[in-house]
Design a protein around this nucleic acid. Structure first.
Lengths: 271, 271
DNA sequence: TGTTACGGTGAACAGCGTTCACCAGCTTCC
DNA sequence: GGAAGCTGGTGAACGCTGTTCACCGTAACA
């Protein structure tokens, strides 16, 4: 303790003429001794900056200024790390008490929150698709979600399947979103070092896709041409809600006609 | 076993006193000079035998008795190869003329066929999720699928989103199926060299999962316990149809009440 | 008979996940 | 005070991956 870490508020002047220290950059930095939490955090940093394909253990280690093997003291494998990241998404997320009168709104809110969670980190949907949510920390969420469906009055068989269906929908939708975003970010096949949130040159790809669809022979692809403007659109929020509404209406059809709100809102004639 | 070109009935006598030939074992076997089609075919063989994680270019090359670099003459990259495999699934698959009277059956048949296609090769759903079906060879299928939805009378906004929704559902469902199957095949984390089709010790995992769910504290997880027997089940066919029916009912709700078949079949009281 | 082009070889490169022998520094005990 | 042990890191290595490139044996063509 004589010369190394006196713990004083002023960081001890590292005596810059001392040749042996700066190369190794403080073996034990005395601050934040690399917990499992810090590894996960660094992994998120790398993920958001470089994407899942470039998320390697070596990159995470570099982000922490540490060797690769050091990570394995806190994480069993890369797969384990990804699962920890996946589980961490759901930390602090709460689900309201099921209210049978408002099951539709609650389900909608739940799905929207799920999508927003996946969007909060780059390529998160790809990670999410790889893991079943049946790990111990996530079971309460599954339980609450199924509770929403069951107290709404849905038959058990329907509720069980609806859970899978909605989860799959959320994952799949966000996965598709990410694919478009990625394809828009690097149209030629670049490295795409950009961070997660919205890109400036974002709607370049939608125009390009719509041009492509419009260029198809009109009598061979009438439907694709007609729907191109609706399939490839900038407003993913709206598209998400439409698909979700289809599912919710399907679920409502299994309930007795006590469905409080008008089941025909926004009926078929909106074209 | 497959290194000596067993194709022809009588291997042409290679004049055994010729010293220069047999060492290199027929550089050009004169049969099947390694076309792009053969590469894809070999990739399917490796995929079904070893799974996507073990599907490497070197394995494909070994399957063909050829060096890795030889593959790159017929395939741009591994990603290209996977996309070719994905596209090949849809070769020869036809979609019937849209019949507005039978749109539900047609959609159901389409979805079931799609699932069966993905099940025809191991880990195929994982590959499928990675690619948007907007490559040139697949556009006719997308077109026909959207035609089914549009001629049924669905509003364009709904039809456009339903295409994505159903495709996502198929992919996601089969992906989940594969995850369970894989987890059942190697409960300890083995290599799992088994081919795709049904495993003998298959329902070991479902019993195990149900035991696990049954072991949860009863007042913390009432819904999970109640639905465990329905969520983890052997009859995936039935589960697939239920989820699909939810979607179809949701779509039907956007049609005027001309819906021919009784929309309340198998109504809510089946619990 | 010489030339050209094809189609495959084999070595190499950079990167990956994971493991293992080692070791600096701190704690604890004799 | 000195020795032992533990903790948490290092750095090198293994075997694997996708991809590229210089090379060359064979075959067809002039």
């Amino acid at each position: 303790m004589s010369d190394a870490a006196p713990g004083t508020p002023a960081t001890p002047p590292p005596s810059p003429w001392d040749r042996r220290r700066p190369a190794r950059a403080r073996l034990t930095p005395a601050r934040t001794p690399l917990s499992r939490e810090r590894v996960v955090e660094a992994a998120f940093t790398v993920l958001d900056r470089q994407g899942l394909d470039k998320l390697s253990m070596r990159q995470v280690a570099a982000e922490l200024g540490v060797t690769v093997s050091a990570l394995y003291a806190h994480v069993r494998s890369k797969d384990d790390l990804l699962e920890l990241m996946y589980a961490r998404l759901y930390e602090g997320a709460a689900i309201p008490e099921p209210d049978p009168e408002r099951w539709r709104e609650q389900l909608r809110d739940y799905a929207r929150a799920g999508r927003k969670r996946l969007l909060s980190h780059r390529d998160m949907a790809r990670i999410s698709m790889g893991y079943a949510p049946f790990t111990a920390e996530l079971l309460p969420h599954v339980e609450a979600f199924l509770g929403l469906l069951r107290t709404a009055g849905l038959p058990d068989r329907i509720a069980a399947e609806a859970g899978d269906l909605i989860s799959t929908y959320i994952d799949g939708f966000v996965l598709g979103e990410g694919m478009w975003r990625e394809r828009a970010a690097r149209p030629d096949g670049e490295d795409a070092e950009s961070p997660g949130p919205a890109r400036p040159d974002w709607n370049g790809i939608t125009a390009e896709m719509q041009d492509y669809f419009a260029s198809l022979p009109a009598d061979d692809f009438p439907h694709l041409r007609a729907l191109a403007g609706l399939m490839v659109t900038d407003s993913a929020d709206e598209r998400f809600d439409i698909g979700l509404e289809i599912i919710l209406r399907g679920l409502a059809s299994y309930l007795p006609d006590t469905a409080a709100d008008g089941p025909k809102t926004g009926g078929p004639g909106q074209d």
